[in-house]
Structure formats: C-alpha cells, structure tokens
Amino acid sequence: MTIAEAFAGSREARKPEGRRIRLPSLSKDAFLPYLVPVLIVAAWQAASSAGWISDRIMPAPVAVVRAFWDVALSGQLAYDVAVSGARALTGLLIGGSIGFLLGIANGVSRLSEQLTDTTLQMLRTIPHLAMIPLVILWFGIGEEAKLFLTSLGVLFPIYLNTYHGVRNVDRDLIEMGRIYGMSGWSLFRKVIFPGALPSIFVGLRYALGIMWLTLIVSESIAASSGIGHMANTAREFMMTDVVVLALVIYAALGKLADVIARTLERWTLSWNVAYQRQGA
C-alpha cells in the first residue's frame, strides 16, 4: 500500500465516524448551559434526602415538583400565572409605549427634548419602588397600584435606550434619506426607526427584568391573586414548597420573556452581521 492509498483509506474510514461525532458535540453546546443548574438541584435533593436541610427552611426539589402538581391540578396555578402575566404585559405595554414615544419625540425634536428630558432624568433617579407608600395612598391596593408601578418601572429603560438609539442613527444616512426625498414618516420608518432598533431592544430586555421585579414586590405587598399572592398565602400556612415554587415560576417566566425578546431581536435585526449566525 502506498502512502497515498493509506491516506485515502484512512480518510474513507474516518468519514462516517466524523459525522457521528458532530451530533453529540452540537447537543453538548445546547446542554452545557443547563449543567450547573442541574447539578445544583441534584445536590440540593441529595442534601434534603439525607436530612441535612430542614423541610421548614428549604423543601426538597421533589416536594416542589409535588406542590407544582397539586397547584396545577387545582387550576389555581394557571389562574395565578394568567393574572400575573396579564398585569406584567399591561404594565409593559403602558409604560413601554410612553417611554418609546417620549424617546422618539425627544430624539427627533429639539424642542421636545428641551421640554421633557431634564424632568425625565430627574424622575429616573427616584427608585420607583420607593413610591409604594404614596402609590397605596393614591390607588389603594387595587390593580391600578400594580399597573402604575410596573409602568413606571419599565418606562425609563425604554425611554433612555430609544432616545439614545434615535440620537445615534448615522447622520450620513439621514442626509442620504433627505436627498432621496424622504421626510417625516417615511424618513422615520425607513431610516430612523430601524437605525434605533438595536438600542430599543436593549431597553426592552432591561425593562423586562424590571417588569418582573416590580410585579413581584407589588404582588407580595397587597394582592388577592397572582403568583405573589400565592407565595404570600403559602407563607402564612408555612408551605415552603409552594413559596419556592413561586420563585421557580418567576424565574421561568423571566427566562421565557427574555427568550421571546431575543427571538424577536434576532428576527428583526437579521440584517446586522452581529446577529447573523456564523456560516449561515
């Protein structure tokens, strides 16, 4: 056998094996981020089973799963998640729209910026949760209070990033747009908005975090439904498993919101090389 034949032979022999290796390496990429959480849960379960952690302090993962099963079967979970989700989305929609519109207006119009930017920057520095006592005095403990706080929380990150995005659209592109007869709405739709979009998405993802945070706090203070209420009721009955379950659900909802935002981002920003998958 010549050297060339040996190489050809070994290449042939290796080929199918090379293909088989690719698949596990791909799924390894998908699996790796979850390795640490899985290990933590396993260690936690082991510690609970061995009796090192008291059930009063921290229930075993199995107990949390059982609690999930019970609450899910009773229909209470679906109801509470729906209520909390609706609050979060409404708050995001109201606060997000106001922040977005103000950001666009102040990015485009010098007059609007001079009128409102300083005020907004001052309001922004007040931690919105510090307003809870005042909000309870204004609205009582009804839905309005939660919506107000959530809206206020998401308004500023969306405002700041939209404003920043509009301000940083390439001046040369705007000049080009004007040369080609764009003005007003057409210039906004074709040049300014797409140019500001990456920054707006940064604001949105940041706002999603604040949205859940605000909702959790305001639901724990005063609510008769929602995940926060579920956790608070469970606390009164010392049901640690349901309390932990509430935390897990918040984490899952937060992750879900982020995944949706990221998918949206990748889809709308597919023109941007930073969002294009390698080799695609």
Partner: peptide
C-alpha cells in the same frame, strides 16, 4: 451610505422615492 436593514434591491428602490 446604504441602509443596512434594507436588501440591495430595496436600497436601490429608495432611489425611486415614495
């Protein structure tokens, strides 16, 4: 000065105006 969020052909269409 092409619009990066428009395809090549959409960028050329900009030249026709609205």
């Amino acid at each position: 000065r092409l619009l990066p969020w428009f395809t090549v052909s959409e960028n050329v269409e900009v030249g026709l105006g609205d």
